[in-house]
Design a protein around this nucleic acid. Structure first.
Length: 621
DNA sequence: GACGCACGC
DNA sequence: GCGTGCGTC
């Protein structure tokens, strides 16, 4: 199907130059008088929809100070209100604008509104009304791509906004802040931001309608901004003394393991360097003549590789212990106290709502979604997450086997639904079926294997992946999977249907219609295509679970507000919600949380929630 | 800045 | 399968 490419004049026109502020008509105004503000506020209050943006001194919304605010009502126009470094001068001006932000009727458009909302919260302003976040809109349109404003503007408006680096310099220690930039330069930058954001919203709104993603935007992602902003502002209390003491303990143990390893290997080297460790284990000690290398030519020294060598030398146990403790100390025990906010004495994570392509949240600074739990020593870190004060307890609620319940619900697999409907442990039930034995006869190894297959199914894993995971021959893994599909034919059908849908449509979607495009699903490259195929299976499951907990969060947050409760949601870990609960509110909170989590999305499978309370995060589990 | 590794769901 | 962060090089 040969196509003749004919260049049109328009193509040259577009290729010639991208639009910028230099060649685009605009009317950006500095508003720095009381009269100007009165006039602007009167105008803003007449609108159904406005966009706004804040200029601040940094990227951490729990620390940064306001430098100015900008608004846009009509494309091509914008207003910038500078604010002084003196809070006493800022407050009265923000007070004037409070009616605008707190209006229930005006839709607020913004790019990453959670940031601006959090900044304003620290100044006592609580944004209200419907939101339209352009970053989240684009996340729903195409979650795998980038969503920063500059890229969106170039791609959808053909317009290249003023780069922040032209104002405050390149990233690095010499980067200034917006406070250092002369106001006349900030006006164009800030007003342009609000202008571009409004124009993007005008482009994205119809796109969301076409995708049937409007409800996902208006009922899930945008309302969730309020919930996340509150969680982030609240933060969580950690016990610094416990961590600092634990750090000293770990330091001593780490040095001990290190010394032991050096003695057993007969050489001192940097044990934290996988490269050096590989050379010692495989070149010097020759523990495995067939040792595998990474693509960069280093020996592989991951946990699975080392475990396989445990029989050859007892030094590998010491190395693994060293690794575990080193990880614990550097990533958690030493890092968490450094992230305690001096203003609040608490740790305020940041949830990113537009990073994970499946619809999950991610967390950073610090990442509260990967705090250890599997090992005894790791669990110690969880004990450092404590309630606000002696009148509170930590309450943790998590979905039981949510992803398997979702695949059972989507696929309507009868045997799996039966297990869930009758409260049978799903991995045991799976093992009984796969091995053709009674529930009571299932051994722990059989259950472990069945559990690995269940996980593998969720990940779209192959027989190869399963054999790797369980350390069994591929043939054996293939047999287990064959039995699995024979016992759970609905799952097999679901996987085939999903793959076909993806091949025909180029995307898959969740229960709520969240899409993920799979550009490589028909690729001729098997590796590339295989990756897309695993995504096709995994994304609807992982994403539907994300949809569900997001809805639950919004509903719980609303219930807490409406009932005037003092307890707060403080963390989300994919299938778990954590709350700082006033002791007198424990019972009512448990009721609200369980109810809202179970009924967030209607399913045929029963949704179960495990809930507990305690004097720290570990005890609450 | 890429890579290997390890932590979570 | 989806993430974030640390240390090395």
């Amino acid at each position: 199907n040969a196509t003749v490419f004919v260049a049109t004049p328009e193509m040259f026109e577009e290729a010639k130059e991208v639009k910028t502020i230099e060649n685009t008509p605009h009317d950006y105004r500095l508003i720095d008088t009381p009269e100007g503000r009165v006039e602007l506020i009167a105008l803003l209050l007449k609108q159904e929809r406005i966009s706004f943006d804040t200029e601040t001194t940094g990227t951490d919304a729990n620390i940064a100070d306001l430098v100015g605010i900008s608004f846009c009502i009509t494309p091509g126009e914008g207003y910038y209100i500078p604010l002084s470094a003196n809070r006493d001068e800022v407050m009265p001006i923000l007070e004037e604008f409070r009616v605008v932000w707190e209006s229930e009727h005006i839709v607020k458009v913004g790019q990453n509104i959670k940031y601006d909302m959090l900044i304003l919260k620290w100044y006592g302003i609580n944004v209200k009304g419907r939101l339209f976040d352009t970053m989240l809109a684009h996340y729903l349109i195409d979650p795998d791509t980038r969503h920063n404003m500059d890229v969106l503007s170039e791609n959808y408006l053909g317009y290249s906004p003023i780069s922040i680096t032209t104002l405050i310099g390149a990233k690095g220690k010499n980067q200034g802040t917006m406070r250092d930039v002369p106001v006349e330069n900030v006006v164009d930058y800030a007003a342009e931001d609000a202008d571009v954001t409004l124009q993007l919203a005008n482009v994205f709104e119809p796109m969301l309608k076409d995708l049937n993603a409007e409800r996902l935007a208006t009922e899930v992602e945008n309302p969730l901004i309020y919930v996340l902003a509150d969680i982030e502002k609240e933060g969580v209390r950690i016990d610094m003394d416990t961590l600092i003491n634990y750090s000293k303990e770990l330091e001593i143990e780490i040095r001990k393991y290190e010394q032991t390893v050096f003695e057993k290997c007969g050489v001192t080297f940097n044990l934290a360097s996988p490269k050096q460790l590989g050379e010692v284990l495989f070149d010097k000690l020759c523990l495995d003549p067939k040792a595998k290398k990474t693509k960069t030519g280093q020996y592989q020294t991951g946990e699975d590789v080392l475990m396989a060598l445990a029989g050859k030398s007892d030094v590998v146990k010491d190395i693994l212990d060293f690794r575990q403790l080193q990880k614990l100390k550097s990533t958690y025990v030493d890092a968490l106290p450094l992230l305690v906010n001096p203003k609040t004495g608490r740790v305020h994570t940041s949830y990113n709502q537009a990073v994970a392509a499946t619809g999950r949240l991610s967390s950073n600074n610090p990442n509260l979604q990967n705090i250890p739990i599997r090992t005894e020593r790791g669990r110690e870190v969880r004990k450092a997450f404590i309630p606000r004060d002696e009148n509170h307890v930590l309450l943790s609620a998590d979905y039981s086997q949510i992803e398997l319940r979702i695949i059972a619900d989507i696929s309507k697999e009868e045997n799996m639904l039966y297990a869930f409907n009758n409260g049978i442990d799903i991995h045991t039930a799976t093992a009984a079926r796969v091995y053709g034995i009674g529930i009571e006869e299932v051994t722990s190894t059989q259950r472990r294997n069945a559990k690995a297959v269940n996980f593998g199914i969720i990940y779209g894993q192959s027989a190869f992946g399963l054999s790797q995971n369980l350390g069994i021959p591929r043939k054996e893994a293939a047999e287990i999977i064959e039995q699995y599909f024979a016992q759970y034919p609905g799952i097999k059908r679901y996987m085939a249907d999903t793959m076909n849908f993806a091949r025909e449509n180029g995307f898959v979607e969740t229960i709520l219609g969240r899409r993920r495009y799979l550009r490589d699903i028909n690729s001729n490259n098997q590796t590339v295509r295989g990756f897309a195929e695993r995504n096709a299976i995994n994304a609807p499951i992982q994403g539907s679970a994300a949809d569900m907990i997001k809805v639950a969060m919004i509903n719980i947050h609303k219930d807490i507000q409406e009932r005037g409760l003092q307890s707060k949601m403080t963390m989300q870990v994919h299938d778990e919600l954590v709350f700082d609960v006033l002791k007198t509110e424990v019972e009512v909170m448990k009721e609200i949380i369980t109810h809202r989590m179970r009924t967030a999305i209607k399913t045929d499978v029963p949704i179960e929630v495990e809930i507990g309370e305690g004097e720290n995060w570990l005890a609450a589990h």
